[in-house]
Each structure stands twice: as C-alpha cells, then as structure tokens.
Design a protein around this nucleic acid. Structure first.
Lengths: 125, 125
DNA sequence: CCCCTAGGTTGACATCTGTCTAAGCAGCGT
DNA sequence: ACGCTGCTTAGACAGATGTCAACCTAGGGG
C-alpha cells in the first residue's frame, strides 16, 4: 500500500485544498492527505454508515441505531466507525450510555469539490 | 473485505444513482456498486493518476506521460490504471504503439453528486 | 456494591492489495 | 526476420484490511 499514517483523527481542513481534480493536477501532498478519505468511503458498509450519519435527523445518530442495520457484529461496526473517524469524515461524542456520531460536512464538501466536473462539455451532447 | 466482483469494467451509469448521501440513506445495492469507485480513488497514486488523466489537454493522456511522474515501475502503474479502469473511472484505447487513457466524467459527476452537501447550514456560522 | 447494557479494544485469521521482477504481446523500424 | 520500445500479464511476497470471538470500560439502576 502506498504509505499512510493516520494520526488518529485527520484534519482534512488542513489539506492544500481542492481545485477540481479535472482542472489541475493533484499534487502528491494533496493526494496523500485526501486519498485516505476516499479509501474510507471505499467500503460498502462504511459508505452506508457515512450516509446514515450524514442524513440523520438532528445531524447525529446513536451507534445503537446504526448497528442493527447491518448483518455484522458490534465490534466490526465499531471498527468501521473508527475508520471513518480517523479519516476525518465523522466525529463522535459520548452522552451517557450512548455514543453519537455526526458528519463533518466541510470534509464531504472538499471531496465533492475535488471530483467536480464541468456540467456537460459540448462534445457530449 | 465486504464482497466485490468487478466485472472487468463497471458500468456505473447503471447505478441506482445518487441523491446526495447526506439527503437520503444510500441503499445497500448502491453502496455495493459505488464503493469500488471510491476505493479506486483511495490510493494517492491512483488519485494523482485520475487527476492527470481527467485534467489532460485534449481529454486524454498517453501512459508514457503518466509513468515518469511516479517513482514506480511500469507494471505497477499499469496495475493502478487497470484498477481505475475496472472501477469504471477511465477508459483506455490503444493507438499504434501507445495506449491513451481518458476520464469518464459521468462517473466523476455521479460520485461528486453523492457527496454533495448543503453549502453551509445555519448551525455552522 | 453488583449487575446490566452500550461500545470500544485486542488478538487471531483469511483475504486483499501494492509493489516488484520476469515474461509476454503489439507495433514499428530496419 | 529481427530487434526495439511501450505496455500488460503472471507470479511472488510483505503488509494492510474486514471480520469475528473474547475481553474490557463507562454509565445507570437496583
């Protein structure tokens, strides 16, 4: 694998930040910083988790509402959530017995911006 | 890993397609179809390759222009390109001695759309 | 104080992935 | 026909990843 450190909670806001990928070559540094975020989304379970968290009413979900949606054990879900957290995509907070996760929209926005492409170039229609 | 088949060239256009991840829960099927694309972008080398291809003048690049940009052997670059191809992110075409790669904007657009988030919700400022 | 529930941590395991070297295939010159 | 250059395929190998069972920690109630 192409190296990766994961300082246990990435601040993607610190990334050299993102003229669209298709508009200007992504630098090595930027690639190294942003790739882990895409990697984190590169698993169906995590993609769904991310979606469940990001689309949650009130902006947050209890883990207890996430786990039963999958055919996986608690530890496995916990592991995936940790991956999302370390990729800087979500934040977690314990409140009493429960742990709540919420999305970090800035990072999502940054990734979306990176993938942005012209609406539909002339050659296409 | 959470299952995956890769029919040697994915048609992501066939995906149940993408109301933003933060607006509606991504279905299992959609997640299974789209996750591989994110996974493909989840490596710094491939992210840069994707960018070099997508931002290329004339919409295409020769492999011979990609390879020297990295500290990797030809086969390794070829392997990464294949991954991008199988993820449906790029297309390749041989012309004479050289092979040219071009991006598939539709897929990029689809991924970007999935990550789209409200500009900046009230709670944020 | 004890136990119950919600989650996270550890360790183990099979599988996948990134990288390389060696070998193969495709065009193009001569 | 031969060899050269550009790229892909095949095989090998160390390291990463997804999953689980077992264990641990934190809070809340009796």
């Amino acid at each position: 694998m192409s190296k990766q450190a994961a300082p246990l909670s990435l601040d993607l806001t610190a990334a050299p930040c993102c003229p669209p990928l298709a508009q200007q070559r992504v630098s090595d540094e930027t690639a190294v910083v942003l790739a882990p975020a895409f990697k984190a989304l590169g698993d169906p379970v995590r993609l769904r988790l991310m979606s469940m968290i990001a689309s949650a009413e009130g902006g947050e979900v209890c883990v207890c509402d996430l786990t039963p949606a999958f055919d996986l054990t608690g530890p496995t879900i916990s592991h995936h959530l940790r991956t999302l957290r370390e990729a800087g995509l979500v934040d977690s907070e314990r409140r009493g017995t429960w742990v709540y996760y919420r999305a970090r929209p800035q990072v999502l926005r940054q990734l979306a911006a990176l993938l942005a492409v012209e609406p539909s170039p002339p050659s296409d229609r």
